[in-house]
């Protein structure tokens, strides 16, 4: 085995053990790209040195940074493509039909990072659902980090961030140049509200949402916290509302409050009606 292959095998085992994340065998190309900055931050000369340190002794802080670096992918628009297809084809049409009399729709991006997920939803609604004209649409993004929330509110992104999965047609339509970077047009920013929020603490009273996006968050929690968060999310969903999780996450075995529905290669979880 080459040293890269050895490192990669070790890393896959570590991710599986610590975070129950099964990293595909074809993801070796991520190793250097994701871990080199972590190694540099810790004053280590290479990714191999970083992994050697973990091989010698378990170190929770370093492990967490490695796991985060390998799993966090927060800068991508329409992240993973399929969940947005599920929204477009099934989830949104279903909720819009259901709320036709009230003409209200509420969507929550519950770990919004710098805002790409919520802005992606806003673009999808704008371009794909003209029937929402005249509706009251609430788009809420929250994150634990106030720095992220501030970034999301500003809606400013570098060229490299824009490159991550944003369709060129959406760039031209929903952004404007901002120095060397790009900024979400005011018209779209106005529709999105961002705030700090700790998912692991009891949730305050909020509106009930038609859709909650809670993707790639549960992986960081223990089972007890996962169960609590899933129960709170169900109570926060409108009857028949949808919870969207990351592709490796599921409420299975934690709560029976959701009905899985498969759409466009994605499983979404519909809150069971009480």
């Amino acid at each position: 085995m080459t040293s890269t292959a050895t490192d990669f095998a070790f890393l896959r085992a570590l991710l599986y053990d610590r975070a129950a994340i099964a990293l595909g065998e074809d993801k070796e190309y991520l190793l250097e790209a994701r871990l080199r900055p972590v190694a540099r931050d810790l004053g280590l000369g290479s990714v191999t040195e970083l992994l050697d340190q973990l091989r010698r002794a378990s170190n929770g802080t370093v492990e967490r940074r490695v796991v985060d670096a390998m799993t966090t992918n927060e800068t991508s628009w329409f992240r993973d493509v399929h969940p947005f297809e599920a929204l477009r084809r099934h989830v949104l049409p279903d909720r819009i039909a259901r709320n036709a009399a009230r003409r209200q729709l509420a969507i929550w991006s519950a770990a919004c990072s710098s805002g790409q997920e919520l802005y992606s939803v806003a673009m999808l609604l704008d371009s794909g659902f003209p029937e929402l004209d005249g509706w009251s649409v609430e788009l809420v993004g929250t994150d634990l980090s106030s720095e992220m929330v501030e970034r999301a509110r500003l809606g400013r992104f570098s060229g490299l961030e824009i490159n991550r999965g944003l369709p060129a047609a959406s760039l031209v339509r929903y952004f404007e140049r901002d120095g060397a970077g790009h900024r979400v047009r005011e018209e779209l920013r106005r529709r999105c509200r961002f705030d700090t929020f700790n998912l692991a603490r009891p949730w305050p009273l909020m509106v009930r949402f038609d859709v909650i996006l809670l993707r790639n968050v549960l992986i960081y929690f223990d089972n007890e916290t996962k169960r609590r968060v899933l129960d709170w999310a169900r109570r926060q969903l409108a009857p028949g509302g949808y919870l969207m999780l990351g592709s490796g996450e599921s409420p299975l075995g934690l709560t029976d409050g959701y009905q899985p529905v498969t759409v466009a290669s994605t499983i979404v979880y519909q809150a069971k009606e009480e």
Binding site: G24, D80, H82, E85, L124, P167, Y174, S247, S265
Partner: peptide
């Protein structure tokens, strides 16, 4: 992946995605 020419992170591959502005 947007163009339906590469699999997504979970390894699945479903062509014909048509997202905002598409």
């Amino acid at each position: 992946e947007l163009l339906g020419l590469a699999g997504s992170a979970d390894g699945s591959n479903d062509a014909g995605a048509n997202l905002a502005g598409g």
